[in-house]
Amino acid sequence: MPPPSHTLLTGGPFSSLTGPYYAHCAEDGRYSLLIRIENMHLNRGRSVHGGMLLAISDNAHIGAVKSATGGVMLSTLSLQCDFIGLAGQGWLEATAWISRKTSALIFTSGEIRARGELIMTSSGIIKLLGAK
C-alpha cells in the first residue's frame, strides 16, 4: 500500500485503465505520484513499457501544474523524456515541479525513480487555457 500521505488520483478513464495512481503535493509544490508496476505495465523485456513511463510522466507534470493552478484548463504543448534506467515490477515514484511560470505557460521538470534509482528525467511546457 502507498504511504498515508498519498491519496488515490481521480484522473479519468485512461488513468483508471493504467493505474491506480496515488498522489501527494508537498508544501513546496513538489508533486509526487506513486504507482505499483504490475505485469500489465511491462514490455517483452519484463521492464516497464516505455509508453507507460511516458504516461506516468505526463500525469506527474499535469498534476504539478493542477496543484499550483487549481481548476484551470490545461493543455500539454511539449514533453521531453529521457530514458535513463530500467525498472521491473514494484513501486515507482514520479515527481514533478514547476521551473518557471508565465501568464500563459508553465515550464515543468520531473523525474521517475524506482527504489531511489533514476529511471527517467523529463521537462514539459504546459499551456494554461483561457489565460491571456
Binding site: 478513464p13 485512461f14 485503465l17 509508453g51 504516461a55
Partner: peptide
C-alpha cells in the same frame, strides 16, 4: 475509445505518447 480519454473527454496525452512509443519502436 472512451478508455483512452482524460477528464476533459479527449485522448489522454499519456495514451498518445504510449501509441507513439510503440510506433517509433
Amino acid at each position: 475509445r472512451q478508455e483512452h480519454t482524460n477528464m476533459a473527454g479527449i485522448a489522454h496525452g499519456g495514451m498518445l505518447m504510449s501509441f507513439a512509443d510503440m510506433v517509433v519502436a
